[in-house]
């Protein structure tokens, strides 16, 4: 198991973030949940050690992409979580530096696997 890392989780649905925290927590990850654009900015301004960001774009407007740019500027790897299969969302995400796009509902095992791989690669 890797040392404890901070994962930033972004989304508008609290329950979704709780579940992410629960499943990632079982794997030994600490999560920081953010439910609004303002909070997101606030967290980005602070120089916190964030290993990976999981951004659920549902419920946000197109300003969310600017925040993705910020993440890229800070060299924080990023996974976008999308409510549907969409070529537009995929292009936009990859264009903004996302390592991948996951479509809901996620399979827990796959998500954990992906997170592990990404973090190992960034070590």
């Amino acid at each position: 198991m890797t040392a404890q890392r901070f994962l930033l989780t972004v989304g508008t649905n609290k329950r979704n973030l709780e579940l992410l925290a629960e499943f990632l927590g079982k794997e030994g990850y600490l999560t920081l949940a953010v439910t609004s654009m303002e909070e997101f900015d606030h967290v980005l301004d602070k120089s916190q050690e964030i290993s990976l960001a999981l951004v659920d774009i549902s419920g946000f407007d197109s300003n969310i992409w600017e925040r993705c740019d910020h993440l890229r500027e800070k060299d924080i790897p990023l996974l976008v979580i999308s409510p549907k299969h969409s070529a537009a969302i995929q292009q936009e995400s990859i264009g903004r530096g996302a390592r991948g796009v996951l479509v809901k509902p996620l399979a827990v095992r796959e998500l954990i696997g992906l997170v592990n791989t990404l973090l190992e690669g960034s070590e």
């Binding site: 989304g11 649905n13 609290k14 329950r15 979704n16 579940l19 992410l20 499943f23 659920d56 549902s58 979580i81 409510p83 809901k104 509902p105 996620l106 399979a107 827990v108």
Partner: peptide, 11 residues
């Protein structure tokens, strides 16, 4: 607001 959609209910 206990509803969620990030994982399937099965999970």
């Amino acid at each position: 607001v206990q509803t969620y959609d990030i994982f399937s209910p099965a999970e």
